[in-house]
């Protein structure tokens, strides 16, 4: 990468910076709903970003063109704007019908506990291994007994008498 001309490099960086913006544009579906105020609209936006489209594997309601996602956006609009539900009530409504799948944020329960606990366990394990490796390293560094010390002194003395020639001239 370093020997690319500066100009190309700059363009590449610019493209990389633009990528999130492009995907943000790509996922904004346009529905023509009317809201009483901006807060309501913002809540609707946040909710459709939050839920997962049941038909799609990894797209939220906001980002999907699937008919079911359109219907669920309509439903979220109805619940927020017409039935004045709170965000949590909307979440409960969708979860009751479509299950945990629609929530990107999986609940902690008998079926999902390991998703939450395994990373913590692995991190603790890694920390433990790291500590043990460090301690082992320290022990190796300090563990020269008297005999070894004497031998080391001999070697040092010997090399002082016959310095290693650093150059052949």
């Amino acid at each position: 990468m370093n020997n690319l001309p500066g100009k190309t490099m700059r363009w590449l960086m610019l493209l990389t910076l633009m990528m999130p913006a492009a995907s943000a544009l790509a996922v904004s579906q346009i529905d023509t709903f009317e809201f009483a105020d901006e807060i309501e609209q913002r809540r609707y936006r946040a909710l459709i970003e939050e839920f997962r489209c049941p038909k799609c594997l990894n797209t939220n309601l906001a980002g999907s063109d699937a008919p079911i996602a359109q219907d669920l956006r309509k439903t979220v609009y109805r619940l927020v704007a017409r039935e004045a539900m709170s965000d949590q009530q909307v979440r409960d409504y969708l979860q009751a019908r479509y299950g945990d799948f629609v929530l990107y944020d999986p609940p902690f329960n008998a079926r999902t506990w390991y998703i939450w606990l395994v990373p913590i366990a692995l991190a603790l394990l890694a920390l433990l291994v790291l500590l043990r490796m460090q301690r082992a390293g320290q022990r190796a560094a300090t563990a020269l007994d008297a005999g070894q010390q004497a031998k080391l002194q001999d070697i040092l003395a010997e090399s002082a008498r016959h310095p290693v020639q650093s150059s052949n001239r």
Binding site: P54, K55, P67, I68, D71, L72, T75, R97, Y98, G99
Partner: peptide, 12 residues
Amino acid sequence: DGLLGIEMGVYG
């Protein structure tokens, strides 16, 4: 209009 479908959790 698919409203009953939503009540049933139908996604296809």
